[in-house]
Design a protein around this nucleic acid. Sequence first.
DNA 1: TCCTATAGTATCCATTGGAAACCATGTTTC
DNA 2: GAAACATGGTTTCCAATGGATACTATAGGA
Lengths: 125, 125
Amino acid sequence: MMTMLQAYNVYEDRCPTRMVLDRLADKWALLILDRLESGPVRFNHLRRDIKGISQKVLSQTLKKLERDGLLSRAVFPTVPVTVEYALTPLGRTLTQTVAALAHWAEHNMDAVLAAQDAYDASADR
Amino acid sequence: MMTMLQAYNVYEDRCPTRMVLDRLADKWALLILDRLESGPVRFNHLRRDIKGISQKVLSQTLKKLERDGLLSRAVFPTVPVTVEYALTPLGRTLTQTVAALAHWAEHNMDAVLAAQDAYDASADR
DNA sequence: TCCTATAGTATCCATTGGAAACCATGTTTC
DNA sequence: GAAACATGGTTTCCAATGGATACTATAGGA
């Protein structure tokens, strides 16, 4: 049996993985995926939890993540209608990584602030 | 001894961690950090390896990552001048996570493409 | 009748991102 | 001696994206 060639390479310009990376490398997408780790969440609940996200961007981002198979959308015919978003099994394969990146800043903020101060303090920029 | 309060929360709108998340949640920043994992790399080498990045965006992104303390910039007075970029110890704390996210698509591209096909095939969109 | 809630869409404008040209320096090539 | 090439950028311009705000539809409750 032949060894499989590396079919995809994210360093290549026209590789389809670039589109996926571009989707994941997004502040809002990461926060949405992270927020869904503990179970399904409704649209407005996401909007309230992820402070500062607009309805438009939330809607657009959810749609793209659903299309990529990372999350699922379930509509319940209540009044008013209820829409629940949840991670798919594929989306779950990202939860560890997403959480690590989304929360890295919380654990290293002081070091980053110190670096910024040092950088800004050197006049020769 | 008191338990430390959670000082930073990336779900909060005005938390400084949001700026850092915004920096990391960037296609080019992730590829740069990933490319530097194996050691220092020069400017034009990065530009050639990361296919499709423009000089302007590479320059801007490197500057921001340096300011945040994630990478260092070393100038050597050769002719022409040589500039080397390398991960700092702080930057190294991200390598595992960055690699996981940057290369996730390479391992799951087929599943994503299948999900996109299924999504696009359902006419009721 | 008006206010609330749901989950969005539509519109407008400012910011950002990418493509391409330009810059400064010095070495090699013709 | 002039042109080409290498380095590591900056500048300029235009299109695309993002965010703020307003609007939609439906129906229950005050």
